[in-house]
Nucleic acid binder design. Structure first.
Length: 388
DNA sequence: TCTGGGGTCCTAGGACCC
DNA sequence: TCTGGGGTCCTAGGACCC
């Protein structure tokens, strides 16, 4: 028995939030994004899109296309606020079987809710209208038997669209779309598929070629299933539980100045630490990212013996990784990420101590824990750093 | 004036253990 | 006789998405 999966996607979400906050923006070309030297467009409202402005475009280019463009710096608190309102509204007024996919989209298993509904599509349209009326948020909805199809369907008509993809109709709906439109196929894989003659999603669905199979490896079966309407239809209801917490920043101007680099690492470590503490998370692995002037990007990570969220520990490990790996060239961006997360004070966190302290008795480890020995500032030798 | 910042997932090789 | 076969963890890199 097929399920009824909805994918609900808020249209131009960041821009929509700004328009709610300041209704005078409505109808005027506006973007949310960085206004500075290296800023890019995060979201363009529909008035700005008419000028050809789109996400990921450098802001200066957007201004060239539309000199009277209004620019708003991102206000993530505001967006999270409306995001929560959106998810809660659906939970309370439609169905609690909701999987949060990102800040502005979710999947809903509507099988039961719509089971005995004589006019299910009307009910869905009604939900869309009330979301617009009650929250002021416009969304597009995809209706299909799997999550992938629902996602593709919601993408088909924006804004305020509703699209149904039925399995028996895929030939005339999904399959005619270019392969570049397929979720999961990006700008690295699409050209390689095209070179093998796969131009549309239908070509992939009906592929028999071994070349294509070899190129995609294990993912071939996932994509092939998706394209034929047989992907996952399981909506996973879970409270968000981050797998990593990171922070990165691009310099206004490329730099090789050690003081500037140290200062940014300190700032990044602090913000990562603060967020981890707030979310009650500790991480076992610390990763840094160095992006050089030419966009060459290097990741280096270290796994500790004890999970942490302490700023000094993160900063110290980040600097060690940096010193060990930096090749003396101008840097564009630095990042710090805490990975391998567990809940602070959880059994997992406590037990992880024993792995690497086998010479210590359980009592000793617990004494250490109580004393928090491993995070004392004394752990840091200032002489290890060129400058504090 | 090219190219932000937040993530997730997958792969592949090497270390290490049995 | 140069050296099997798993399994797991760590690390680096890449692809993709919002």
């Amino acid at each position: 028995m097929s399920k009824i999966i909805l994918h609900i996607d808020l249209n131009a979400f960041f821009a929509a939030c700004e328009e709610i906050k300041d209704p005078s923006l409505k109808g005027k070309p506006m973007i949310v994004g960085g206004g500075g030297r290296r800023g890019i467009v995060s979201t363009a409202n529909y008035a700005a899109r008419k000028y050809g402005i789109h996400s990921a475009m450098p802001t200066y280019k957007a201004i060239q296309l539309c000199p009277e463009l209004i620019i708003r710096e991102p206000d993530f608190k505001l967006y999270h606020h409306y995001s929560s309102l959106f998810f809660n509204y659906i939970k309370d007024n439609f169905s609690p079987l909701i999987e949060v996919a990102s800040v502005d989209e979710c999947y809903v298993d509507a099988s039961e809710v719509l089971q005995n509904d004589p006019a299910p599509l009307k009910t869905i349209l009604n939900l869309q209208q009330t979301l617009l009326k009650e929250l002021g948020l416009s969304c597009s909805i995809g209706v299909a038997p799997t999550k992938f199809l629902a996602k593709m369907a919601s993408n088909f008509k924006k804004p305020l669209g509703m699209t149904v993809y039925r399995r028996r109709e895929l030939k005339n709906t999904l399959w005619i779309l270019p392969i570049t439109e397929m979720y999961g196929i990006g700008k690295a894989t699409a050209p390689r598929l095209q070179a093998l003659g796969i131009k549309t999603i239908g070509d992939l669905a009906n592929n028999k070629s071994e070349d294509v199979k070899n190129m995609l490896g294990k993912s071939y079966f996932t994509f092939h299933d998706w394209a034929n309407g047989y992907g996952s239809d399981t909506v996973i209801v879970d409270e968000e539980d981050p797998k990593s917490i990171g922070n990165s920043q691009t310099f206004l101007f490329d730099t090789d100045d050690y003081d500037e680099i140290t200062a940014l690492f300190k700032e990044l470590s602090m913000s990562v630490s603060k967020r981890a503490e707030r979310e009650n998370k500790v991480g076992l692995t610390i990763q840094i990212v160095i992006r050089y002037y030419n966009f060459e990007t290097v990741n280096r990570s270290v796994t500790l013996t004890k999970p942490t969220n302490k700023q000094l520990t993160i900063f110290y490990e980040a600097m060690k990784l940096f010193d060990r790996n930096y090749k003396d060239e101008p840097i564009r961006l630095l990042g710090v990420t805490l990975q391998n997360l567990s809940d602070e004070g959880s059994l997992v966190e406590q037990l992880s101590l024993f792995d690497d302290f086998t010479t210590k008795s359980k009592t000793e480890v617990i004494m250490d824990l109580l004393n928090e020995e491993y995070d004392k500032p004394a752990f840091i030798k200032l002489s290890d750093m060129k400058k504090e």
